[in-house]
Nucleic acid binder design. Structure first.
Lengths: 203, 203
DNA sequence: ACAAGATGTGAACCCTGATTCACTTCTTGT
DNA sequence: ACAAGAAGTGAATCAGGGTTCACATCTTGT
């Protein structure tokens, strides 16, 4: 063989790869999926269209990866907040919601894209996956709350799913690119009250 | 003028119009939006493609109308269930959820399309509109519950939004064309418990 | 320096599905 | 019966992006 990729070459390849995903993420964060056709991504990344296809078999794959990375970030942040908090289930969930909501508000457009914007099925599948990750976070806390005797018995999975739905829907208002107005902080406080009641914690 | 549309002609036109919307709704109910390109709609309705465009300025308009009619149906059903029920706020909301969930389960594919399937912006706008209708139903009941002293004071709009999110997300599981399994009745019961706790009704 | 393989290029291609429009057919009023 | 307007037709057109591929350039091992 007259060629074997060396470390430096692989690093260069990885860098191009990342330039592409970064470009895609930025475009989505600015204008959503419609604002990110392959040509625009390539342009922003400073490569040719064909290069994108040297790194990703299809547009779906590229966006699935971008989506996955961004979502994982958010899930990790929420997990960290929950794990860093000790106290009742309601307090821990409150911490998670707080972090989720604030991060979402800071990067509204991207949050909206991750949360609700229409996407093609491959990406939708990723979305589903991460919704489940969020549910799992909630379920874990609730489970522990029940075992500790702080929460009444309940179908943990339903409660977790419903909480995630509640959080998502409530945040949709302030996040939506069309709508806007109202005090986000008050809304977050109300949302946390809702969650506290919903898991059945006495106050 | 040598021509003035008469009643019979207008009726015929209305009938064609309806044949088209019905065909579109049926196709969506069977395979979602992707299963309903204009050509397929025209075919099922027994008209030519061009005829569709004599009745609707664009595909978006056609689908917006179909979506609107179908959604209005569902909202009306829920409203009726709520108004037909007397009792505490939780009982009335339970009745609404019950009806919503059962109707959705009966027409899963259509419900999924109305609730969550990716659509173009014009239709998405309709979706937003009807989400608000649902919220308003919830808000009304909660408001009355607070006034009657059955419910603790709370931000009615947030609670209403969160409830709708919770219901939607929870139903997504059984409705999703991909996923399936579990006992829907048990899930609905758990969902109603969740809603009852979430509005803060003592039990 | 040369061969072989890897990476980069971007104009051309293609596919899908919405939309148009010249033409036919049907209705109505005289 | 005829003119005028409305409704219906469907092949042809168009548009927008994703995807390809023949070619150029760069890297590595001998």
């Amino acid at each position: 063989m007259a060629y074997r990729t060396t470390e430096r070459t692989e690093a260069r390849r990885a860098e191009t790869h990342e330039r592409i995903t970064t470009a895609a993420r930025e475009l989505i964060a600015e204008g959503g999926y419609v604002a990110a056709p392959i040509a625009a991504v390539a342009d922003r990344a400073g490569v040719a269209v064909g290069t994108v296809y040297r790194h990703f078999p299809s547009k779906s794959d590229l966006f699935a990866e971008v989506f996955r990375e961004a979502s994982q970030h958010e899930v990790d942040a929420m997990r960290e907040a929950i794990h860093a908090t000790s106290g009742t289930a309601a307090q821990r969930i409150a911490a998670g919601v707080e972090v989720f909501a604030h991060r979402a508000l800071r990067g509204r457009r991207l949050a909206w894209a991750l949360l609700a914007e229409p996407v093609d099925p491959a990406v939708e599948a990723e979305r589903l996956h991460f919704r489940h990750s969020y549910r799992d976070l909630m379920a874990e806390v609730i489970e522990e709350g029940i075992e500790a005797g702080d929460l009444p018995d309940q179908d943990v999975d339903v409660t977790a799913a419903a909480l995630i739905g509640a959080i998502g829907e409530t945040m949709l208002g302030p996040l939506s690119p069309t709508t806007n107005g109202g005090d986000p902080e008050a809304l977050i406080a109300s949302l946390i009250s809702f969650c506290t009641r919903a898991i059945g914690e006495e106050h």
